[in-house]
Design a protein around this nucleic acid. Structure first.
Lengths: 164, 164
DNA sequence: CGCGGATTCTTGAAGCTTAAAGTAATCGGC
DNA sequence: GCCGATTACTTTAAGCTTCAAGAATCCGCG
C-alpha cells in the first residue's frame, strides 16, 4: 500500500461507470413510472401529463400565478407554457387575466371546471403512484427520499455558478 | 390504544402523500440531470439526447440490432425509432441493412463515422454524469443504486400482468 | 423626462413523441 | 399448400418541447 498502489489507482481509467449506472437506473425508474401515468391519464381522463402538470402547478394558488412562475415550477421553457395554457384555456380549464399594475404579465388560474377536473385527476394520480411504489416499505421510502435529496443537492451545486 | 385508535386510522384519509413526494423528488432529479445533458449535447456536439440514446443502444452490437430491439431498449414507440433512424441515417451515423432470412426486419448499426462520433460523445457524457453526481459519496451511491433497484422492481411488479 | 437594459410573454422552425392505422412478411396448423 | 394470426416496420395526426428571435412593458438612472 505504498506508491505502487497509489500510482495504479491514479493511472486507472477514469472509471465513472458507477455514476453512469446509477443515472441509468434513475432514468429507467422515472421513465417507467412516467410512461404508466401518461397512459392512465389518457385512458381514464383523456388528458396528458403536461396538461396535468400545469394544472397541478396552478392548484395551490387560487389567485393565479404568472406564466413565468408556471414555467419555473414545471421546469420547462416559456414558449411551452404559452402553448399549453392556450390549449387548456380553449377547453375552459384555465383562464388568463391581467396582473394589476403590470401589463406584461398575465395571471393564470384554474376555472371552477378546471378545479373540479383536477381534483378528480389528482386523487387518481396519487393512488397510481402509491400502487406503483407499494413494493417499497416505509423505511426504504424514507431512505430513498433522503438520498434523492442529496442527489438533487449535488446536481444543483454542480449547476449553480460559483458566485455567491 | 384500542378500538378508537384503530378506527381513527382506518378512517383517516388514504394519505399516500409520502409516495407522492418521493415520486416528485425522483422526477425532479431526473429532469434536472436530463435537461443539463440535453443542453451540453447540443452545445458541444450539436446533437440531441434521443440521437445519443439511439447510438448508445447500438454501440454494444457491432453486427446491428433490429429497430424493434432498439425500441425495446430505449423504451419508446416503434414509430419513434423509425424517425430517429431515418434522420441519423441521413447524417451517415447509422445504416440499415437487411436481416438475412427475414425481409420484414432490418438491422441497424453504427457506421464507422457514427462509432467515432459516439465514442467522443459518450466519454464526455460519462464525465458530465460523474460531475453532476459528485456530491454523493461511494456509500450513498451504492445505497441509492440498491434502493432504485427495489423501486424499479416495485413498478415492474405493479405493471406486469398477474399470469405466470 | 427619456433612454437603455431587463422582464414577460409570444411566435416560428425544427425536432421529438405517442397512439392508431396501415403494409408487408413470417409462422403455425391443418 | 394455404389461411389466419403474429411480427416488424412505416405512416399519419396531434400534441409536446426547445431554442432563438421578436414585441411590449417596466424600471432605474441620469
Amino acid at each position: 500500500m505504498t506508491v505502487d498502489a497509489e500510482t495504479a489507482l491514479a493511472h486507472a481509467p477514469p472509471g465513472h461507470k458507477d455514476e453512469l449506472r446509477l443515472w441509468l437506473r434513475l432514468l429507467t425508474c422515472t421513465t417507467l413510472i412516467e410512461g404508466e401515468i401518461r397512459t392512465r391519464l389518457r385512458r381514464d381522463y383523456d388528458t396528458t401529463l403536461p396538461r396535468f402538470d400545469l394544472m397541478a402547478a396552478l392548484d395551490r394558488d387560487p389567485g393565479g400565478i404568472t406564466l413565468g412562475e408556471v414555467s419555473r415550477r414545471m421546469m420547462v421553457s416559456n414558449g411551452n407554457v404559452t402553448g399549453l395554457a392556450t390549449r387548456l384555456e380553449a377547453e375552459g380549464l384555465v383562464e388568463r387575466r391581467a396582473r394589476p399594475g403590470d401589463r406584461r404579465a398575465q395571471l393564470l388560474r384554474l376555472t371552477p371546471k378546471g378545479r373540479r377536473e383536477f381534483a378528480r385527476q389528482s386523487a387518481a394520480h396519487e393512488g397510481w403512484i402509491a400502487d406503483l411504489l407499494a413494493g417499497l416499505g416505509e423505511a426504504d421510502r424514507a431512505a430513498l427520499f433522503r438520498l434523492l435529496g442529496t442527489a438533487k443537492a449535488s446536481v444543483r451545486a454542480a449547476l449553480s455558478p460559483e458566485d455567491p
